[in-house]
Design a binder for these strands. Structure first.
Lengths: 162, 162
DNA sequence: TTTTTAATTGCAAGTTGTTTGCATTTATAA
DNA sequence: TTATAAATGCAAACAACTTGCAATTAAAAA
């Protein structure tokens, strides 16, 4: 529900501006993790023109993260990706074409407990990041042809991005 | 053993240069993840003068990653951190002071299998990234005083960094 | 409703981490 | 020992992100 996120904004004393509502709209529980530029382009296309400055999106994402609406995702790409904080799932990233697949199972609750038991410096854990990396089927097929070594920032046009 | 890493370099057809050996020396199985600048400063101190250019370290790290000597670590900081690829452990990062603690248990082998079973796009996984985030004991103690919200890039002088 | 006030925005400019081009140096194969 | 391709250092470029400041706007106060 979007209303719960609006509640979070209000609770944090943040104004309900059109930029924030538009940015909120750019996230859906279905969509893949997005970076500032993805959202910028999406809103540009949606609204027809440059209604929101890229800088504003950076600032909006920061405030969304601080209020717990979104969270960062570690994809080992060279920009920061975000997704809705209430969607607990993880990702497999193709290290050749950078395409991303999601998965829901996680099962590290026990690990979390064990970790805390042994930890010296921490007595609580707020969140975790669990992502897998490999070469997707499509890129594996094309691998013989290509000499390309592991390079997360490369981009193989054979697979559609993200 | 350092010799196995040298073997990796040779196998990849890379020259055994002093920059590479020095950079290799900057990694030990004990040390925390390091970024290019950490290594640059460490070698500067060690060798007395600017023997290696920062650019060379970037290039060296890239080649080390491609040959499987080091791997990237996701710490949600704003630069890329590396550690030896043969050290399988994970980290808890304090989201206030950015200090890092390591842990060895992992236990996600089963999850990995389950994920692959359900995956549509992948049929193998090369590596994974599992990191925890929270507020360390020291920073928790100081939290009442400080208004600071979650901001991974902030730095609290109360705790020693990294 | 209108006024007031402080938060938010857009623009331009800055900063940081990282990469690239190119001439020079150097490890290794011949 | 020489030849050659890879590796390096330097300067400059680049991309992602941040900051300062004046103008705008949501929401509290009147």
């Amino acid at each position: 529900m979007k209303s719960e996120q609006i509640k979070k904004l209000k609770n944090a004393g943040l104004k309900l501006t059109s930029s924030r509502l538009l940015t909120l709209g750019a996230f859906s529980s279905l969509c893949k993790p997005q970076n500032a530029d993805d959202i910028y382009k999406k809103l540009k296309k949606l609204t027809g023109k440059d209604k929101i400055d890229l800088v504003t999106i950076y600032r909006t994402l920061t405030s969304f993260e601080q209020t717990g609406i979104v969270k960062k995702v570690n994809l080992q790409k060279d920009s920061v990706y975000y997704e809705l904080a209430n969607s607990h799932h993880h990702h497999i990233v193709c290290t050749v074409c950078e395409s991303v697949e999601e998965f829901n199972l996680c099962g590290i609750e026990k690990t979390t407990k064990d970790v805390l038991k042994k930890s010296i410096k921490f007595n609580s854990i707020a969140q975790h990041s669990l992502e897998f990396f490999g070469v997707c089927k499509k890129c594996t097929k094309n691998e013989k042809r290509s000499v390309k070594k592991f390079s997360p920032s490369s981009l193989n046009p054979q697979c559609q991005r993200n």
